[in-house]
Every structure is written in C-alpha cells, then in structure tokens.
Nucleic acid binder design. Structure first.
Length: 906
RNA sequence: GGGCUAUUAGCUCAGUUGGUUAGAGCGCUUCCUUGACAUGGAAGAGGUCAGUGGUUCGAAUCCACUAUAGCCCACCA
C-alpha cells in the first residue's frame, strides 16, 4: 500500500467502476424491493450543502439495504423548475438585448430546451462526485415525455372528477412579470407607510361643506387608498359595541358616491386602526374571503400591469397605482373625506424575481380542490400506514392538511407543462348554447385532437378543425409534476414492471421546508391515482446552516461549497462528517473545520490497513482466514475485540433500522478508532500469538469496512481491494452487510460479556497507572514498580502485557485488603499502587490529598443518605442499588487510602 | 396572533420508555516524533443540564409557569 491515500484518484476510479459496471442497477423481479426516489433538484441548480446532507442520508440507507440483499432502486432526476429556469434563460437573453417576447413563445421554449441540454447536466455530474449510488439508467426529468404524459392525464382525470376548476381568485400578482406568484414566491419586507383615515358618510346624514366633517360618518383607516373605488362594504367586529348600531346600515363610498353596506365579521380586529375596515374583495386576500362570506361584489379596478381601469372611475382610469393614490388622496382631502394621516410600519410583498411590489388581484386561475384529496392522506398518517421520522413532523403535516386551501396551479409562464384545456377561437362556430352566462366553453383533453373531438360533439359542428381551438396560454405550477414523482418516474400511466415492483417506495428523505409543497401533495396524488401512499416512511432532516446559525446563502458569502470540500478533503470525508454532525432532530451548524473529522478518519483507516498489511508481511502469512483460529486458545484481548465487533454489527443494524444516521456514524467510528486502533492494534503489536491475532484483526477489519461502507464508500472499497478482501471485478457494494458472529462461533471462541468486561477493566488499570505517573510527574523513561491488589486469579496471566503497557519493571499481585501506603487508584481490575520511592514534594502532595478527601467525602455523605433511604432501596432496580453500594464502598476505601498517604507525606 | 422546537463543557452537539459521580468531537493545558498513523498517541482541566415551582424514593429526562432564541403558517386593514 502507498504511504498516503490518494482520495481523488480512488474516488474517480471507483465511481467509474461502479457506474459502468452497473452496480447501481437492478431489475424488478426477485428479492424484497427497497426503493427511494430522490427529491429532484432544480435543473438550474448547483450542488449545495443541503443536497449533500439530503443525498448522503439517502445513499447511506440505500447502500446499507443493498448490502443486506434487498433489490434496491434509488431513482435520480431533476425538476424543470418553471419560474427559476425561465428566469435564467431570460437573463441570458437580456445580455443579447432581447426579451422573451421578441422570440415568441415557441422559439423561447426551444431556447430553454437548448439551455437545458447544455447546462442542465451540471448538478447531475456534481451528484456523482458525492458517490451517490443512484441508478442513472433510470434518470428522469419532470418535463420529459413520460412525466408530461402523466401530468396531462392527471389534469384531465381531476377535471373530469370535478376536482379541477377555473375560477376567480385573489392571487399574488406581479404586475411587471405579468404572472401570478405562489405564496412562497412573495418576499415580505418592512415598509414605512401611511395610514389614511377616511370618512365614509352614513346614508341619510347631512352632507357637510367641503373641508368640514360630515356629521354622521364612519372612520376607516387604510394603507391602500387607491383601492377605494373597489370597495363593496365596510366591516366591523360583531362584538364591537361602539359600532353595533351601524351594522345593516349603508354608507356612501367617497368620491364614487355608491352606497355600500356596513357588515360585521370576526376578521375585523377591534383594537387595530379605527376598528372599521373597508372591504375591497378584488384587491385584498382577506377582504376577498370576507366578500365570499357575505356575498359581496368583486370589483376589479386594475389592469394586468397595475394601472387603473374604467371601473376605478373616469378620472383615475389609465393612471398607474401610485399616481392614482396621490390623485385620490388629494381628491379625498378636497372633498372633506380625509381626516388625517398617520405613519405606520407594515410589511409589503415583493416579487422574488424582479422586486416589484406585488398586487393582490382577482384573476381567472385554475385550481385543484384539495379537501377531498387531503382526507385520505390525513388518514394514511393517522393510521400509521405512513410514518414520519421523527414522528413530531406529523403534527405539522396534520395542521396544514386540516386547514388546506385550494391549490392555484396555473402560472403565466412559458416554460412548463401547458394546461391541456382548449377554447374555441372567437370566429369559430361555437353553436348557440355556448354563449349565455359569459362562461367560455372549455374542452379538457390530453391531446388537442381529443379536445377537438369533444368540441365537435359538444357543438354539433363537424367542420371544426384544430385551428379553431386555442389552448390555454398558462402552464402548470412546477409542483404539479413533482407531486407525481414517485409513480410518474416508474412509468405511470403505463403499466410497467418497475411500477408494479418498486411502487410504493420505502423511504422519502427530505428537509422540513417542503413538507407542504411536496411531501403532502405526493401523499395526496399517490393515494388518489395509485390507491396507495407513495412511500412508507417520511424521513425529515434539518437544514444545514452557517456557523452563526443563519441560512447559508451565496449572497451572504457564508455558504460552504460541497465540491470545494470534496476537493480539499474528499467525498468520503464530506459524507462521514456531515453524517456524524447531523441529527435528524434539528438543524446543523457547520463550518469548514468540521470536515476534518472525516478526513482524519479516512487517514486513520488507511494507516490501520497499512499496519495489518505490514504485520502480515512480517509474519509471512498474509491474509490468514478467521477459520485458522478455530480450536486455538484465544487470549482475553482476542476475545474482547471479537465481542466488541459483534456488538458493533448489531448496534449499527439496529440504529440504521431506526434511521439514526448520526448514531450509526458514531458507533462505527468508535468501534474502528477506539476498539480496533486504540485497543486491539496496540495489543496485536505484542501479541503472544500473532498469527491468531492477525487473523482476528483481519476479520474484524473486514467487518468494520463493510459497516463503514454506506458512510464512506470509496475508501472502504479501496482498502478492501488493497487488503485482498475482494478480487478484481468484485465490489464491496455487493458484499454482505455484517450482522455479527454466530452463536456457535461465540461459544467456540469462549466469548462472553465477562471476558469483555475483564479486558476493559485491565485497560482501566493501565490508564490508572498512566494517570498516576502523570500526576506525580514520573518521566516516561522511568520504569516503575506497580502493585495490584486483586482477588481475580485471571489477573496474574496479564502480568507480562501489563508491564509493557505500564512501563513497569515489575507488576506484583497482593491480596485485596493489603495494607499499602502508596498512591493508588481503584479500578474494576483491582486497586493499583504505584511505588514512588520518594520522588515527590511532600507539602504540595499533602495539600492535594486533603482536597481530594474533601471532595470524595461529599459524595460519600450523599450516597450514604441515599442508601439509608428505604424508599430508594425498595423502588430502585436492584442493579442500581447494588451499583450505588459498590460506589460507596469504593469511595470509602479511596478515602482510607488517601488518609494513609496523607500520613506518609505529613 | 396560531402552531412547532430548542436552551446540557469555551464551541458544535449526543444523552432511546425517569435510575451509576451527565458523554463525544473540536478547542484548551501538560507530556511524547517508540516502525500503522503528529490528519497521531498518553494524561488532564472544564458542566449546580436556562430559571422557578410541582409530580416522584429518585428529574437533564415528566408537568406548569417564566426568560431567551429559532422555525413554520397567517399577516394586519
């Protein structure tokens, strides 16, 4: 083996080997399936720490299951990310001085596809750097042919079932981009605004003179005076005694002169403003809901680009909204309607793309009725059919699902799945019955041809042609394709073997921020279209944060780049470190130094492997099989490591079964570093039976590598080959994941908890002597005399190995209770005494001892009190009581010895 | 305002149904380049588990309140 591990070369080599060798691929058929779909990253994306965490967890689960022998599929892919991708391409166009409108829809979409072809693979290549064992032969794209088919079918089915409708709704509207924005696409920012107090005269009251107050009016406070022409009511709280007498009356809308009712609604906050609100259903989301409850008219007074329309009144028609605000406020003042103006700090929504102030606006959009879909999805989690890990996330899921709102699925973009709804062009013969209530005739079908047939049948006009149909210009929300991801990627709506075998998937691993957008919707779609929830477990992990706890973002410059970390430390180091420092329970703060853990561990593994190789070479018996130890006597240390290995194997399996990725990393780290390297390797160096010990080391090493493989795929593969555990062409990916030793083997080797504890006790004794040496500043070169008071007859056998470890010229054994005045420490092995032969400063030592006695006395006192408490003795488990007794006795003995010592130094 | 979560060593975090004198990594102190490894080894210092009260023989763990921090939703006319 080389002196240093070349991670870069190794990682490139093995990934190529795995991918080209089809190691990530399985065919449906035999065995128990285990499948996972990746949360598809945006095709515009580049790999960030969130991906690294998310995908590391998935790869650990997937590699582990594969090694267990499950027929495993981890399906990769990307999301077409409508608005983000369109934005990227628009930016590129801008550099050429063009807008998308200059190209026209078709050419623009073509242009986006070209962009995708050229740059869309970036993240897919970056994922390979992580070592993901995704089956690239099944890679999908939410906008590929199959997924598009699925989207069209789903839309049509939901429409036929009456679950999709087109309706007026209040949406966040960006006047500059000309599109509806999802709630998460609106950024709220603090704003210094004003509160305009406006008087609405009560009908029947006398009109005052201009500039003077009306005698009888209601005072409304508003931050949006320009929406006043759209008011269709004013509202008060039903419990507000101040205004109870007004409810049911009508008031005059200033300037417009219309009469509007005074209504009462719980939405109104008595404490805020004047306690009276103007209701503008077409321009405020809350007012919209109030309007629905009270059957109010919705008057849209603005155009798509936020200019006033004719409904705003002749004077304001054509004005920009801010211009209108000025003009209208001036007119209110002139008319005596304006009482006063107040400063107020509030929040105003901005478009996340162009930063224009978002307008709440009534518009025709497509919606999915969510309630009927949500109910079975709630039930699936309630019944335990689908589980959240950690379980608490189900609360958040229920909270959202039980208050679910209809989903606005139309977007005024060009890049995305075109809505499969068609209307007849104006000049086409539509037939008499299609006109009437102002509703347009809509034909929803998966293809234009099918829509045409429907149109012909509906209108009775057989002469209609495709050219007479006009497709809805909008596209669907990106999530409308991702919510089908677990089955559309397996071939649905076709009946494929993959779908049959791998659906439902087993685990879905994602961060908390898309539980609503994605997880909940996948649940609904899976249950509705496949009749089965799309996965069995939903594993939610935290978010990766910067060292100061803030979100990582490129603009802040506080983000770590996983690719840089891979370059500097290796993919294994990145994976292991992130697994070790991340708990599912909460967010993770990371800084660069954290990744040294994984890098150092990689080095440790490499060096330990070198040790094994060298020792075997020296012995001239390279690669002895564990079977060569059968029937041979094993030392306590040999049996100790075998027991520890067995424990580790069981532990890691149990831990991964419970998705405790972090604990698994810790367990395997501790097993390798503490048990194998610090413990057994140190023993092997001086083992009296090296051939046997090396065979054992070889065996536990191979088990450790396999336990580690899900976390550190590359270095484990490399070392497994270097040490000859695998032949050329074989891979650790397909090696069996260790489950521990058989009961028969353990019996034959004489393994037991007792032996394991004995060796731990022996090591404790060694540590105690080292500590005593350090306390009394005995130089390392000085060989000391050690005495051990023990009743354990096994101890004497260890005298030789103790000598070396303690750097003792002699180790003497005496019976328990021997009266020795020497510095000592009590261990499970026995009490160890260190002969100093007058090496210390007596005064200082005497003082130190006094302090120590005081400290231990405190404990003895409280322990005595505890043990004299009848209730404790009666209720506490036996082992706890026994342990307490033992500790008490031990500490009493400690004090006795210290007192002897004190006399010695007095 | 509604919902959720956190507060344990200087830092980042474990601590699984309540039960030893509360652990790990990093950092820090001291010592050690002995043939796997200084990206290492040995030893050590450092915590009244945010606060107050309650339940209990026993609380970091369960309950209530308080303080502080964070997240999500709704967002204020």
């Amino acid at each position: 083996m080389d002196k240093h591990y070349d991670a870069k070369a190794s990682e490139a080599k093995w990934y190529k080997f795995w991918e080209e060798g089809g190691c990530f691929h399985e065919e449906p058929g035999e065995g128990v399936p285990y499948s996972v779909v990746i949360p598809p990253p945006n095709v515009t994306g580049i790999l960030h720490m969130g991906h690294a965490l998310n995908q590391t967890i998935q790869d650990i689960l997937v590699r582990w299951r594969r090694m267990q022998g499950r027929n495993t599929l981890w399906l990769p892919g990307t999301d077409h990310a409508g608005i983000a991708t369109q934005n990227v391409v628009e930016k590129a166009l801008k550099k050429e001085g063009k807008r998308r409108q200059d190209l026209g829809r078709e050419a623009f979409v073509e242009r986006v596809w070209e962009w995708k072809k050229q740059y869309g693979g970036t993240i897919v290549h970056q994922q390979r750097m992580l070592g993901n064992s995704t089956d690239w032969s099944r890679e999908r794209f939410t906008f590929d042919e199959g997924c598009s088919k699925a989207v069209a079918k789903v839309f049509c089915q939901l429409f036929d079932e009456g679950l999709i409708y087109k309706g007026n709704y209040i949406v966040n509207w960006c006047p500059r981009c000309g599109t509806a924005l999802a709630n998460d696409e609106v950024e709220h920012e603090p704003n210094h605004g004003h509160f305009w107090y406006v008087r609405y005269p009560v009908v029947g009251s006398e009109k005052g003179v201009a500039g003077e107050p009306y005698k009888d009016y209601v005072m409304v406070a508003t931050t949006r005076p320009e929406t006043l022409p759209g008011d269709t009511a004013v509202a008060v709280n039903p419990k507000d005694d101040r205004y109870a007498h007004l409810v049911g009356k009508t008031v005059i809308l200033p300037l417009a002169g219309r009469e509007i009712p005074v209504i009462s609604d719980d939405y109104v906050d008595r404490e805020f403003g004047t306690g009276i609100v103007k209701i503008t259903p077409a321009h405020d989301p809350n007012d919209f809901l109030v309007g629905k409850r009270h059957g109010l008219a919705e008057i849209n007074i603005m155009t798509d680009d936020a200019h006033m329309n004719e409904l705003a009144g002749e004077k304001y028609c054509g004005m920009d909204r801010w211009e209108c605000r000025k003009a209208l406020v001036a007119d209110l003042e002139a008319g005596g309607y304006l009482d006063h103006i107040e400063d107020i700090d509030n929040q105003v929504g901005h478009c996340y793309r162009c930063h224009e102030t978002v307008e709440s606006r009534l518009s025709k959009q497509w919606f999915v009725k969510m309630k009927p879909l949500a109910e079975p999805a709630i039930a699936a989690v309630k019944s335990g059919e689908v589980k959240f890990v950690p379980e608490r996330w189900s609360k958040i899921y229920f909270n959202w699902m039980e208050n679910i709102q209809d989903w606005c699925i139309s977007r005024q973009l060009w890049w995305g799945h075109r809505i499969p709804a068609y209307t007849l062009r104006a000049n086409a013969g539509a037939g008499e019955d299609s006109k009437g209530k102002g509703d347009e005739l809509i034909f929803v079908a998966e293809t234009a041809e099918a829509a045409l047939e429907k149109a012909k049948a509906r209108t009775g006009n057989a002469a209609l042609a495709l050219a007479d149909l006009e497709q809805d210009p909008d596209v669907l929300d990106t999530w409308f394709s991702s919510w089908l991801w677990p089955f559309s990627t397996l071939g649905w709506p076709e009946k494929t073997k993959d779908l049959d075998y791998y659906y439902p998937t087993n685990d879905l691993v994602t961060a908390q921020d898309i539980i609503f957008f994605w997880v909940a919707r996948m649940m609904m779609a899976g249950i509705h279209f496949m009749k089965k929830p799309p996965f069995k477990n939903i594993v939610i992990h935290g978010i990766v944060r910067a060292a100061d706890g803030s979100k990582m973002s490129k603009s802040k410059g506080n983000s770590l780049d996983p690719l840089e970390l891979i370059d500097q430390y290796s993919a294994d180091a990145l994976r292991f470190s992130i697994a070790l420092i991340t708990s599912l329970e909460c967010d993770t703060k990371v800084n660069k130094e954290k990744f040294e853990i994984g890098r150092n561990f990689t080095t440790k593994i490499w060096n330990a492997a070198k040790f094994l190789e060298m020792q075997e070479a020296a012995l001239g018996e390279a690669g002895a099989d564990i079977r060569s130890t059968f029937g041979k006597p094993l030392s306590a240390d040999d049996r100790h490591i075998l027991w520890a290995c067995d424990l580790a194997c069981r532990k890691v399996n149990d831990i991964l079964e419970a998705y405790r990725i972090q604990d698994g990393a810790l367990a395997v780290y501790d097993f390798f570093w503490t048990q194998i390297c610090d413990g057994y390797v140190e023993y092997v160096k001086d083992s009296p039976n090296k051939a046997v010990s090396l065979a054992i080391l070889r065996d536990v090493f191979w088990k450790a590598l396999r336990l580690l493989h899900p976390y550190m795929p590359f270095v484990t593969e490399e070392v497994a080959h270097q040490l000859g555990f695998l032949r050329d062409g074989e891979t650790i990916m397909r090696a069996k994941f260790p489950t521990g030793y058989s009961g028969d083997d353990k019996k034959a080797w004489g393994l037991s908890q007792e032996v394991y504890d004995f060796v731990n006790a022996k090591r404790e004794a060694i540590t105690a002597i080292r500590a005593l040496r350090a306390e009394y500043k005995v130089p390392p070169a000085t060989w000391v005399k050690v005495t051990v008071a023990t009743g354990d007859e096994r101890a004497a056998v260890e005298a030789e190995s103790l000598k070396k470890a303690m750097r003792a010229e002699s180790v003497e054994f005496v019976p328990v209770g021997s009266d020795l005045a020497m510095p000592s420490k009590i261990t499970a092995f026995g009490t160890v005494y260190l002969s100093l032969e007058g090496l210390v400063d007596k005064a200082a030592e005497s003082k130190r001892i006094a302090g120590e006695i005081a400290k231990i006395s405190g404990f003895v006192k409280s322990a005595e009190a505890k043990l004299s408490n009848e209730n404790f003795v009666a209720h506490a488990p036996e082992a706890v009581v026994a342990e307490a007794r033992r500790k008490l006795a031990e500490n009493k003995e400690k004090i006795a010895q210290l007192e002897k010592l004190a006399k010695l130094f007095a």
